[in-house]
Design a protein around this nucleic acid. Structure first.
Lengths: 346, 346
DNA sequence: TTGTACGCGTTATCAT
DNA sequence: ATGATAACGCGTACAA
């Protein structure tokens, strides 16, 4: 909050005209760089600690240096924090600043956020979702926009590569000798784009890898609500009636917790008696005992990539292609999958 | 991104001068309200959808309408999202906008964030911490600032009322007939302000309530790292060697998870065989089976209160008193505590 | 190569 | 009661 140094300060200091300073500092303009005086200008700027006033500059240029980030709810899962960090960092290196708003899933709040951002002359809009759904967006008036972890009509989006993640999860198990698998979580509701646009891909990847390995699930437990209680019951079915199963795939970490609970009730040990794999890698995943091997949703990378693409569009003026950009989902190997030798039996 | 409507638009529309419009719209200035023309101005403004340009206004007034939010890491726990929502909402109703930055606990990033915020002419600074520690802040040059969930030299702060929370946790148990209690988590490290400025209060509250009830813990398990594995072992000690204990207090939810694991291993049921209480109410707390009764860190309220105080200071110019404002911690009753009749025996 | 002048949208001072 | 006018800090076409 000290006194700000302006162009006129450095003009006075160098004895040059304000416009000269501005021209030099902005480089590109007018004629070539008058190398000798340019030097003086830069030195003076450095010395006095000059930084252009974004408001004044914006008034003149129409560019605010602001990117609006609108999310339905900020982070409930482990790496959502990383998504914010990823996008802020990327914005920062381009001298953009991120203004946050949360809609709490309410339409009116979304409208309000857009209005505020518009009057602030936000140069781009980044929509962040905490679950990869399809959403409806009000007309954006052609402002550059992108969706992270979700999709919307006519807007580019950044998504986790769930198809590949599904394949790799299965392949990981198969490579370790598992051939009798069970699955918890498949259900038709998750195929509704308003619920999820990625679970379908995840399942496709899983099914493809199973087929390629010549396998079929010994048992599948449907689950609409992906919560521990549901998978607790589901895992009980599997453990009690399908002892041949050596590995259980839970479609998220919370359901993995349910599997752990069922196993523990029965005195079964993970991974000695049964292996578990899951998806998402939320905070919970590392709390389990043993920590569960899971596919980590790459929030940081998604945030960074989305901001990168958005800024490209903002500066170049070229629209963001209305397509899906996929980010790989790494497998986080922990202690819940064991290697088995002979063709799998429990 | 549509064409913006300015004062001159509405001047042209009404046939009045720009300065007149501005005067009317800002109310306060010059003479009394020329009621008749004021009407026309307001109507025209409404009609055209006028909204003042914050950049232009800020250039003139020196007020940016920006509050900087700087946090070490955005949310790992359940209600941190609520903290952001709380402060954004409060800012919004005062027509302020929140610019986010994350330091990831790194000094250089903190410096950078402050620099960016300074050149953006941020009117106030709000520091958010994910654990209630004491932190060092660089000189802020007198900018209004406040710390949420932490403390810093010479800066006001908003904190959860842990002393009362500690009392209430114990009283809750005692009221339900528990008199043989065990505690997991006390340790000297958490008394270091650089680690925590609130755990000491929590413990003080707990100890006071115990004393008032004429009780002492049957057993205490020290824990430096408040993770499930640690409390898992600790709970094992308690369950194996202190069968008289009817309730265990874990100082956070993750350690409650460890207690659950130990109980389940032994075929003990919660709360039938042993009751559990914990602190924080992170997401995990509701996943447990049964969900654990816990003291909820009031992030939303803390965020809202902090922003409120900060804005008061910003508009009034009065400094924020360098004190601690406490926000109550509600008890979230779930299924992990049972009511017992006779003087407690397991 | 450097300087002049104007405009971006507002607010505030000072005449009218 | 209303309206010129200057100024906030910057960028740029244009003149010197």
């Amino acid at each position: 909050m000290g006194k700000r140094v302006t162009l006129s300060d450095i003009a006075r200091h160098t004895g040059l005209a304000i416009s000269t300073i501005s021209t030099v500092l902005n480089g590109h303009a007018g004629t070539r760089i008058p190398s000798d005086t340019a030097q003086r200008v830069h030195e003076a700027a450095e010395l006095l600690g000059y930084a252009p006033d974004p408001a004044a500059r914006g008034l003149r240029t129409g560019r605010s240096g602001i990117i609006g980030f609108i999310s339905d709810e900020v982070t409930v899962t482990r790496y959502a924090s990383a998504m914010i960090r990823g996008l802020i960092d990327t914005a920062d290196t381009a001298d953009y600043v991120v203004v946050m708003s949360e809609t709490d899933h309410r339409e009116e709040r979304l409208e309000r956020a857009l209005e505020v951002l518009r009057t602030r002359r936000s140069e781009g809009l980044l929509f962040g979702l905490m679950s990869a759904r399809r959403i409806d967006l009000p007309p954006l008036g052609g402002a550059p926009a992108i969706v992270v972890n979700g999709v919307a009509e006519g807007v580019g989006s950044v998504l986790p590569d769930e198809e590949r993640a599904g394949r790799e999860a299965v392949e990981h198990l198969v490579r370790r000798g598992h051939r009798r698998l069970a699955l918890i979580g498949r259900s038709d509701v998750h195929l509704d784009p308003a619920v999820s646009v990625t679970i379908g891909d995840r399942m496709a990847g899983i099914d493809a890898a199973m087929a390629e390995a010549g396998l079929a699930f010994e048992h599948e437990v449907e689950a609409v609500y992906w919560e521990p209680e549901v998978s607790h019951r589901g895992a009980a079915e599997i453990l009690d009636h399908h002892p041949e199963v050596t590995a259980i795939i839970a479609l998220n970490d919370r359901m993995a917790l349910g599997v752990y609970q069922a196993a523990q009730e029965r005195g079964l040990s993970i991974p000695a008696d049964v292996s578990v794999m899951s998806f998402d890698d939320e905070q919970l995943a590392s709390y389990l005992d043993p920590p569960v091997t899971t596919m980590r949703l790459p929030y940081l990378e998604m945030g960074a990539l989305a901001m990168e693409r958005l800024l490209e569009s903002v500066v170049s003026g070229a629209p963001i292609p209305d397509s899906r950009m996929l980010v790989p989902i790494p497998l986080i190997e922990r202690g819940s999958v064991r290697e088995i030798r002979g063709p799998g039996t429990a």
